[in-house]
C-alpha cells in the first residue's frame, strides 16, 4: 500500500472515530424518547459506515478484480431492490433472469477484462434491444412498454451507471499509472461526504425546502452547506488525484451536483411507489440503493470528464 492510500485510510478512520465518539457522548447525555431515537439512528448509521468503509477499503486494497466484484455484488443488490419495488408480471420472469444472471455479470466481466468498447454499449444497446425481445416472446402485452422500460431503467441505473465508478480503474492517465484506486476513492469520498453533510447542514439550519413533494428533507441550506463542505473535502485531498487543487474543487462540484440529482430522482421513484426506502439491509440507512443513488448519477459524468480531459 502506498503512502497516499495510508493517509486517506487514516483520514476516513478519523472521521468515523469522530462520529462514533460523538454518538457515544450524545448517548450518555440524551434525555427523552424522541432524542434517544435520533441518537440511536445516528449510532447505527455510523456503525454501518464502519462496515461499508471496511468493505470498500478492503476491496480497493486487494486489487482491481476484487473492486469490480464488490461493485458487481452492489449492483446485484440494488437491482434486486429496484425490481422488488416494481410491479413485474409473470411474463417478465425470463427477461429478469437474463438481467440478473447474464447481463449484469457479463457487463462487469467487460470491466474486469478492460474491454471498454463492449463495456459502453452492452447495456444501452444490446440489453436495451434484448429485454423487449424476450418480453415479447413471453407473450404478455399488459402494460408492455411500462414493464419493459422499468427493467431497462433498473439495469441502466443500478448496473450501468454504478459500474462507471470501478470503470475509473481502467483509465490510463499519464503520470498517474497504477493509482486508479485513489481516483475511485476520490469519487466515492466526495459523493458520500456530500450526502452526509447535506444531511447534517439540513438538520442544523435547513429552512427552505427544495422539492417538498419529492424529498421533504432536501433543503437549499443543506445543499449549499453540504456541497461546499464536499468541495472543500475533495479539494483537500487533491494530492491523491491527477488534478490540481482548483481542478479537484471543480470536479467535486460536478460530483456534488450530479449526486444531488441522483438522490432527488431516485426519491421521486420511491414516492411514486409509495415507500420511504428501497430496503432495510443497511441499519439506519435503508437499502443499498438508498446509499448509492447519488453515486449512480455522479459516476458516469465524472468518468467521462476524466476520460476526455486527462486520459492519454
Amino acid at each position: 500500500m502506498n503512502h497516499e492510500a495510508k493517509l486517506l485510510l487514516g483520514i476516513v478512520a478519523g472521521f468515523l472515530a469522530a462520529g462514533s465518539i460523538t454518538g457515544a457522548i450524545l448517548k450518555s447525555r440524551v434525555t427523552g424518547d424522541a432524542g434517544r431515537k435520533v441518537v440511536e439512528n445516528l449510532v447505527s448509521r455510523v456503525n454501518a459506515w464502519w462496515i461499508m468503509c471496511a468493505v470498500f477499503g478492503g476491496a480497493l486494497m486487494i486489487g482491481p478484480v476484487a473492486t469490480v466484484v464488490m461493485f458487481a455484488l452492489t449492483s446485484f443488490l440494488a437491482l434486486r431492490e429496484f425490481i422488488t419495488l416494481t410491479p413485474t408480471r409473470r411474463g417478465d420472469h425470463r427477461a429478469l433472469f437474463w438481467a440478473f444472471f447474464i447481463i449484469t455479470p457479463l457487463h462487469y466481466w467487460t470491466l474486469a477484462t478492460e474491454w471498454y468498447g463492449l463495456f459502453v454499449i452492452l447495456i444501452p444497446v444490446y440489453a436495451f434491444l434484448f429485454i423487449p425481445m424476450r418480453n415479447a416472446l413471453a407473450g404478455d402485452t399488459e402494460r408492455f412498454l411500462e414493464r419493459t422500460a422499468k427493467i431497462q431503467w433498473g439495469l441502466m441505473v443500478a448496473v450501468y451507471f454504478a459500474s462507471h465508478a470501478p470503470a475509473l480503474l481502467i483509465l490510463r492517465i499519464p503520470g498517474y499509472e497504477g493509482r486508479g484506486a485513489l481516483l475511485l476513492f476520490f469519487l466515492v469520498f466526495v459523493v458520500q461526504v456530500s450526502d452526509v453533510f447535506q444531511y447534517v447542514w439540513g438538520k442544523l439550519c435547513g429552512r427552505t425546502k427544495l422539492a417538498p413533494h419529492v424529498s421533504p428533507s432536501k433543503t437549499v441550506e443543506g445543499l449549499v452547506g453540504g456541497g461546499l463542505s464536499a468541495c472543500v473535502a475533495g479539494a483537500a485531498i487533491w494530492w491523491a488525484t491527477p488534478f490540481t487543487l482548483v481542478q479537484a474543487a471543480g470536479m467535486s462540484a460536478v460530483i456534488v451536483l450530479m449526486g444531488f440529482f441522483g438522490g432527488l430522482v431516485m426519491s421521486a421513484v420511491k414516492r411514486d411507489r409509495g415507500v420511504k426506502d428501497y430496503g432495510d439491509i443497511i441499519p439506519g440507512h435503508g437499502g443499498v440503493f438508498d446509499r448509492i443513488d447519488s453515486l449512480c448519477f455522479a459516476a458516469p459524468v465524472f468518468f467521462h470528464i476524466v476520460r476526455w480531459c486527462f486520459e492519454a
Binding site: 446485484f76 437491482l79 434486486r80 431492490e81 425490481i83 422488488t84 420472469h93 429478469l96 433472469f97 440478473f100 444472471f101 430496503g279
Partner: peptide, 9 residues
Amino acid sequence: GEILPVPVL
C-alpha cells in the same frame, strides 16, 4: 412452471 429463480426481496 418456472425452473430458474429471479432475485426479489
